[in-house]
Protein backbone atom coordinates (compact mmCIF):
# COMPACT_ATOMS: atom_id res chain seq x y z
CA UNK A 1 0.00 0.00 0.00
CA UNK A 2 1.38 3.38 -1.00
CA UNK A 3 1.38 6.36 1.30
CA UNK A 4 -1.10 8.07 -1.00
CA UNK A 5 -3.53 5.15 -0.93
CA UNK A 6 -3.28 4.93 2.82
CA UNK A 7 -3.83 8.65 3.24
CA UNK A 8 -6.90 8.59 0.99
CA UNK A 9 -8.38 5.68 2.91
CA UNK A 10 -7.69 7.29 6.29
CA UNK A 11 -9.29 10.59 5.23
CA UNK A 12 -12.32 8.74 3.92
CA UNK A 13 -12.75 6.82 7.18
CA UNK A 14 -12.63 9.97 9.27
CA UNK A 15 -14.78 11.97 6.86
CA UNK A 16 -17.39 9.19 6.86
CA UNK A 17 -17.41 9.12 10.68
CA UNK A 18 -18.16 12.84 10.76
CA UNK A 19 -20.69 12.80 7.93
CA UNK A 20 -22.74 9.89 9.22
CA UNK A 21 -22.81 11.12 12.81
CA UNK A 22 -23.57 14.66 11.62
CA UNK A 23 -26.44 13.26 9.58
CA UNK A 24 -27.79 11.32 12.54
CA UNK A 25 -27.71 14.41 14.74
CA UNK A 26 -29.50 16.43 12.06
CA UNK A 27 -32.43 14.02 12.45
CA UNK A 28 -32.98 15.67 15.85
CA UNK A 29 -33.72 19.13 14.36
CA UNK A 30 -36.87 20.45 15.97
CA UNK A 31 -37.44 17.37 18.13
CA UNK A 32 -35.05 17.94 21.07
CA UNK A 33 -36.13 17.65 24.72
CA UNK A 34 -35.53 21.37 25.31
CA UNK A 35 -34.87 24.30 23.04
CA UNK A 36 -31.26 24.61 24.22
CA UNK A 37 -30.66 21.03 23.04
CA UNK A 38 -32.27 21.71 19.66
CA UNK A 39 -29.62 24.38 19.30
CA UNK A 40 -26.76 22.29 20.71
CA UNK A 41 -27.44 19.15 18.66
CA UNK A 42 -27.88 21.15 15.47
CA UNK A 43 -24.68 23.00 16.22
CA UNK A 44 -22.70 19.81 16.77
CA UNK A 45 -24.20 18.37 13.60
CA UNK A 46 -23.07 21.47 11.73
CA UNK A 47 -19.53 21.13 13.11
CA UNK A 48 -19.41 17.51 11.99
CA UNK A 49 -20.65 18.27 8.47
CA UNK A 50 -18.01 21.01 8.30
CA UNK A 51 -15.27 18.59 9.38
CA UNK A 52 -16.47 16.00 6.88
CA UNK A 53 -16.37 18.59 4.11
CA UNK A 54 -12.74 19.53 4.84
CA UNK A 55 -11.69 15.89 5.03
CA UNK A 56 -13.48 14.88 1.81
CA UNK A 57 -11.97 17.86 -0.01
CA UNK A 58 -8.51 16.75 0.96
CA UNK A 59 -9.32 13.10 0.20
CA UNK A 60 -10.50 14.09 -3.28
CA UNK A 61 -7.25 15.96 -3.89
CA UNK A 62 -5.15 13.09 -2.60
CA UNK A 63 -7.01 10.65 -4.83
CA UNK A 64 -6.50 12.93 -7.84
CA UNK A 65 -9.18 11.31 -10.00
CA UNK A 66 -11.29 14.41 -10.42
CA UNK A 67 -13.90 13.44 -7.83
CA UNK A 68 -15.23 16.25 -5.62
CA UNK A 69 -16.05 16.27 -1.92
CA UNK A 70 -19.73 15.86 -2.84
CA UNK A 71 -19.01 12.88 -5.11
CA UNK A 72 -17.30 11.19 -2.18
CA UNK A 73 -20.01 12.10 0.32
CA UNK A 74 -23.03 11.27 -1.83
CA UNK A 75 -22.11 8.90 -4.62
CA UNK A 76 -20.58 5.78 -3.19
CA UNK A 77 -22.32 2.49 -2.53
CA UNK A 78 -22.85 1.28 1.01
CA UNK A 79 -19.81 -1.05 1.00
CA UNK A 80 -17.58 1.92 0.18
CA UNK A 81 -18.50 3.90 3.33
CA UNK A 82 -15.83 3.32 5.95
CA UNK A 83 -17.27 4.85 9.11
CA UNK A 84 -17.25 2.94 12.39
CA UNK A 85 -20.51 1.18 13.30
CA UNK A 86 -21.00 3.37 16.37
CA UNK A 87 -21.87 6.52 14.41
CA UNK A 88 -24.53 4.91 12.21
CA UNK A 89 -26.51 3.51 15.16
CA UNK A 90 -29.99 5.02 15.34
CA UNK A 91 -30.63 7.99 17.62
CA UNK A 92 -32.93 6.18 20.04
CA UNK A 93 -33.89 8.40 22.96
CA UNK A 94 -31.93 11.53 23.86
CA UNK A 95 -29.80 9.52 26.28
CA UNK A 96 -28.73 7.06 23.61
CA UNK A 97 -27.77 9.90 21.28
CA UNK A 98 -25.70 11.39 24.11
CA UNK A 99 -23.94 8.12 24.95
CA UNK A 100 -23.08 7.54 21.29
CA UNK A 101 -21.65 11.05 21.18
CA UNK A 102 -19.82 10.56 24.48
CA UNK A 103 -17.96 7.43 23.33
CA UNK A 104 -17.13 9.14 20.05
CA UNK A 105 -16.10 12.56 21.41
CA UNK A 106 -13.61 11.12 23.88
CA UNK A 107 -11.95 9.16 21.09
CA UNK A 108 -11.95 12.11 18.72
CA UNK A 109 -10.43 14.33 21.37
CA UNK A 110 -7.38 12.11 21.80
CA UNK A 111 -7.07 11.34 18.09
CA UNK A 112 -7.25 14.95 16.97
CA UNK A 113 -4.79 16.04 19.65
CA UNK A 114 -2.40 13.60 18.00
CA UNK A 115 -3.32 14.78 14.51
CA UNK A 116 -2.40 18.35 15.44
CA UNK A 117 1.22 17.15 15.36
CA UNK A 118 0.82 15.42 12.01
CA UNK A 119 3.72 15.81 9.56
CA UNK A 120 1.04 16.39 6.94
CA UNK A 121 0.41 20.13 7.20
CA UNK A 122 -3.11 19.96 5.83
CA UNK A 123 -4.12 17.38 8.42
CA UNK A 124 -2.54 19.31 11.23
CA UNK A 125 -4.36 22.47 10.09
CA UNK A 126 -7.71 20.65 9.97
CA UNK A 127 -7.00 19.13 13.40
CA UNK A 128 -6.11 22.48 14.95
CA UNK A 129 -9.47 23.87 13.87
CA UNK A 130 -11.41 20.73 14.74
CA UNK A 131 -10.02 20.29 18.24
CA UNK A 132 -11.70 23.53 19.35
CA UNK A 133 -15.06 22.13 18.31
CA UNK A 134 -14.39 18.75 19.90
CA UNK A 135 -13.59 20.40 23.23
CA UNK A 136 -17.08 21.81 23.25
CA UNK A 137 -18.66 18.54 22.12
CA UNK A 138 -16.89 16.51 24.78
CA UNK A 139 -18.01 18.87 27.53
CA UNK A 140 -21.58 18.77 26.26
CA UNK A 141 -21.84 14.98 26.02
CA UNK A 142 -19.93 14.29 29.27
CA UNK A 143 -22.04 16.71 31.31
CA UNK A 144 -25.23 15.12 29.99
CA UNK A 145 -23.98 11.60 30.75
CA UNK A 146 -23.44 12.70 34.36
CA UNK A 147 -26.77 14.51 34.59
CA UNK A 148 -28.75 11.62 33.18
CA UNK A 149 -26.81 8.90 35.00
CA UNK A 150 -27.07 10.62 38.37
CA UNK A 151 -30.52 12.11 37.74
CA UNK A 152 -33.69 10.13 38.33
CA UNK A 153 -34.09 6.38 38.52
CA UNK A 154 -35.68 6.40 35.08
CA UNK A 155 -32.91 8.45 33.49
CA UNK A 156 -30.29 6.26 35.17
CA UNK A 157 -31.87 3.07 33.84
CA UNK A 158 -32.35 4.44 30.36
CA UNK A 159 -28.83 5.76 30.01
CA UNK A 160 -27.29 2.63 31.56
CA UNK A 161 -29.10 0.54 28.94
CA UNK A 162 -27.59 2.74 26.23
CA UNK A 163 -24.09 2.48 27.73
CA UNK A 164 -24.45 -1.31 27.78
CA UNK A 165 -25.79 -1.40 24.24
CA UNK A 166 -23.33 1.02 22.63
CA UNK A 167 -20.22 -0.16 24.49
CA UNK A 168 -20.13 -3.02 21.96
CA UNK A 169 -18.88 -0.53 19.41
CA UNK A 170 -16.05 1.01 21.45
CA UNK A 171 -13.29 -1.36 20.32
CA UNK A 172 -13.80 -0.53 16.70
CA UNK A 173 -12.78 3.07 17.32
CA UNK A 174 -9.28 1.62 17.85
CA UNK A 175 -9.34 -0.53 14.72
CA UNK A 176 -5.99 -0.59 12.91
CA UNK A 177 -4.74 -2.16 9.70
CA UNK A 178 -2.04 -1.45 7.14
CA UNK A 179 -3.57 1.98 6.40
CA UNK A 180 -2.75 3.02 9.94
CA UNK A 181 0.61 1.28 10.01
CA UNK A 182 1.70 3.07 6.84
CA UNK A 183 0.66 6.49 8.11
CA UNK A 184 2.04 5.99 11.62
CA UNK A 185 5.43 5.19 10.10
CA UNK A 186 5.27 8.41 8.11
CA UNK A 187 4.38 10.46 11.19
CA UNK A 188 1.05 11.46 9.65
CA UNK A 189 -1.25 9.98 12.29
CA UNK A 190 -0.75 8.99 15.93
CA UNK A 191 -0.82 5.36 17.02
CA UNK A 192 -4.19 4.97 18.72
CA UNK A 193 -2.81 2.15 20.88
CA UNK A 194 -0.83 4.82 22.73
CA UNK A 195 -3.96 6.42 24.16
CA UNK A 196 -6.21 3.40 24.53
CA UNK A 197 -5.71 3.27 28.30
CA UNK A 198 -6.18 7.00 28.64
CA UNK A 199 -9.43 6.74 26.65
CA UNK A 200 -10.76 3.99 28.88
CA UNK A 201 -9.76 5.86 32.01
CA UNK A 202 -11.46 9.05 30.80
CA UNK A 203 -14.64 7.18 29.97
CA UNK A 204 -14.69 5.22 33.21
CA UNK A 205 -14.03 8.28 35.34
CA UNK A 206 -17.07 10.05 33.96
CA UNK A 207 -19.24 6.94 34.05
CA UNK A 208 -18.30 6.52 37.71
CA UNK A 209 -19.31 10.08 38.50
CA UNK A 210 -22.54 9.36 36.63
CA UNK A 211 -23.08 6.19 38.75
CA UNK A 212 -22.94 4.18 35.52
CA UNK A 213 -20.71 1.32 34.46
CA UNK A 214 -19.52 -0.56 31.43
CA UNK A 215 -20.94 -4.09 31.18
CA UNK A 216 -18.98 -7.12 32.42
CA UNK A 217 -19.47 -8.86 29.09
CA UNK A 218 -16.99 -7.39 26.64
CA UNK A 219 -18.32 -8.72 23.31
CA UNK A 220 -17.44 -6.32 20.55
CA UNK A 221 -18.69 -5.67 17.01
CA UNK A 222 -16.82 -4.30 14.04
CA UNK A 223 -16.86 -4.18 10.25
CA UNK A 224 -17.43 -0.53 9.38
CA UNK A 225 -13.82 0.21 8.50
CA UNK A 226 -14.02 -2.56 5.88
CA UNK A 227 -17.40 -1.35 4.65
CA UNK A 228 -19.50 -4.05 6.29
CA UNK A 229 -22.19 -2.15 8.16
CA UNK A 230 -25.28 -2.63 10.29
CA UNK A 231 -28.73 -2.67 8.66
CA UNK A 232 -29.19 0.97 9.63
CA UNK A 233 -26.72 2.52 7.21
CA UNK A 234 -28.57 1.65 4.01
CA UNK A 235 -31.63 3.62 5.06
CA UNK A 236 -29.53 6.57 6.13
CA UNK A 237 -27.78 6.59 2.74
CA UNK A 238 -31.09 6.34 0.92
CA UNK A 239 -32.09 9.66 2.43
CA UNK A 240 -28.66 11.23 2.23
CA UNK A 241 -28.24 10.37 -1.44
CA UNK A 242 -31.83 10.96 -2.55
CA UNK A 243 -31.25 14.16 -4.52
CA UNK A 244 -27.95 13.13 -6.08
CA UNK A 245 -29.37 9.78 -7.17
CA UNK A 246 -32.70 11.13 -8.43
CA UNK A 247 -31.19 14.05 -10.36
CA UNK A 248 -27.77 12.84 -11.46
CA UNK A 249 -25.08 15.32 -12.37
CA UNK A 250 -26.88 18.53 -11.45
CA UNK A 251 -25.58 21.55 -9.56
CA UNK A 252 -27.47 22.66 -6.50
Amino acid sequence: MTKQEALFEFLLRKADDSLILGHRLSEWCGHGPILEEDIALTNISLDLIGQATELYKYAAEVEGKGRTEDDLAFLRIEREYKNVLLVEQVNGDFGKTIVRQFFFDHFEHLLYEGLMNSKDERISAIATKTIKEIKYHIRHSSEWVIRLGDGTEESHNRVQASVTDLSRYMNELFYQDEVDETLIKEGIIPDVKDFRVEYENNIEKILEEATLSLPEEKWQLSGGRKGVHSEHLGYLLTELQYMQRTYPGMEW
Partner: peptide, 23 residues
Protein backbone atom coordinates in the same frame (compact mmCIF):
# COMPACT_ATOMS: atom_id res chain seq x y z
CA UNK B 1 -35.25 18.35 4.06
CA UNK B 2 -32.10 18.60 6.11
CA UNK B 3 -31.44 14.87 5.82
CA UNK B 4 -32.01 15.06 2.05
CA UNK B 5 -30.06 18.23 1.24
CA UNK B 6 -28.39 17.79 -2.16
CA UNK B 7 -24.77 18.56 -1.23
CA UNK B 8 -22.53 19.24 1.74
CA UNK B 9 -22.67 23.00 1.44
CA UNK B 10 -26.46 23.11 1.28
CA UNK B 11 -26.70 20.72 4.20
CA UNK B 12 -24.42 22.92 6.31
CA UNK B 13 -26.26 26.13 5.37
CA UNK B 14 -29.64 24.57 6.13
CA UNK B 15 -28.40 23.34 9.51
CA UNK B 16 -27.06 26.80 10.31
CA UNK B 17 -30.41 28.30 9.37
CA UNK B 18 -32.40 25.88 11.53
CA UNK B 19 -30.03 26.58 14.39
CA UNK B 20 -30.61 30.34 13.97
CA UNK B 21 -34.35 29.74 14.13
CA UNK B 22 -34.12 27.82 17.38
CA UNK B 23 -31.94 30.70 18.63
Amino acid sequence: WVTRAPNLRRKAVLLAKIQDEAG
